[in-house]
Design a protein around this nucleic acid. Structure first.
Length: 125
DNA sequence: AACCTGACTTCGG
DNA sequence: TCCGAAGCCAGGT
């Protein structure tokens, strides 16, 4: 692995987000092994989103909102997501209870990233 | 080769 | 509940 394990894991996680679903910077970082590494996910998107052909538009912040500002990519990202069936409310938020994607145990097993401990945050629905 | 920065998140006061 | 500060670190300058 040329890059750090964290970076490699994060890239695979982002790449694994299916169409019509989203994930947050924090969750990706957490699943990649660093609960506080949200900003690194940002870096990764900046540096390798295009190079690695990552579905960068499927990454949003913890509030279910697009982090990019209007005229700086917001419209593009929103259009891509809506095209996949992701819905936004009047406040521009995505209902994470419906659209948040998280890898399951099988996924980790396939990736051979057993060092990662899953966390089940089943909240009230 | 240092220093700065970022499409974030969490924690403590 | 709200706000400032810390945490994290690789790529760009």
């Amino acid at each position: 692995m040329p890059r750090s394990l964290f970076t490699s894991a994060a890239i695979e996680l982002i790449r694994a987000i299916p169409e019509g679903k989203v994930c947050t910077y924090g969750r990706i970082a957490e699943h990649a092994g660093d609960p506080r590494g949200a900003r690194q996910v940002v870096r990764i998107l900046h540096s390798c989103a295009e190079k690695e052909q990552l579905p960068w538009h499927r990454v949003v912040n913890r509030e279910g909102r697009i982090a990019l500002r209007p005229m700086e990519g917001y419209e593009t990202q929103r259009a891509l997501l809506e095209h996949e069936g992701v819905e936004f409310d009047e406040l521009g938020r995505i209902d994470l209870n419906r659209f948040l994607w998280e890898p399951d145990a099988d996924w980790f097993d396939e990736q051979e990233l057993g060092i990662i401990t899953r966390q089940q945050g089943s909240d009230s629905v």
